[in-house]
């Protein structure tokens, strides 16, 4: 089954000193690379910070409203996503829990495959 890991930006991305951030990014890169090499991660990206987002609100036939920013008002914002190819939810959860961020939320959701 395919699952999406939806990763929040950790607070450390905005607050940790530069060398520490680089260290964590390197760990994440290594984690990602290993899983990709095993065929467990089959896609995904890190996203630019939320200030780069532009949101369109579609209202049927009317002109869409354009918002400067992400659509979620929540404290968390999405920092990236990955697509997993694994046997079942247990395997997806086992991978998600090893994501080497000092603080993040990881949502695990199955993908609809057509």
């Amino acid at each position: 089954m395919k699952y999406m890991l939806l990763l929040t930006r950790g607070e450390w991305e905005d607050t940790a000193p530069e060398d520490e951030r680089q260290h964590i990014y390197a760990e994440i890169g290594e984690w990602w690379g290993k899983l990709a090499a095993k065929g467990k991660i089959v896609g995904g990206h890190q996203l630019q910070p939320p200030h780069t987002a532009t949101t369109l609100v579609l209202n049927g036939r009317r002109e869409p409203t354009v918002i400067d920013g992400p659509f979620m008002e929540a404290k968390e914002s999405i920092g990236g996503y990955g697509i997993l190819e694994v046997a079942d939810l247990d395997e997806a959860l086992a991978i998600a829990r090893t994501f080497p961020s000092p603080s993040s939320k990881v949502e695990v959701r199955p993908v609809i495959e057509r």
Binding site: Y3, D88, D90, P110
Partner: peptide, 14 residues
């Protein structure tokens, strides 16, 4: 069914 929760006894690690 939809989230793929497996129907099995967890392995020794879990």
């Amino acid at each position: 069914v939809d989230a793929g929760i497996p129907y099995r006894v967890p392995g020794p690690d879990d």
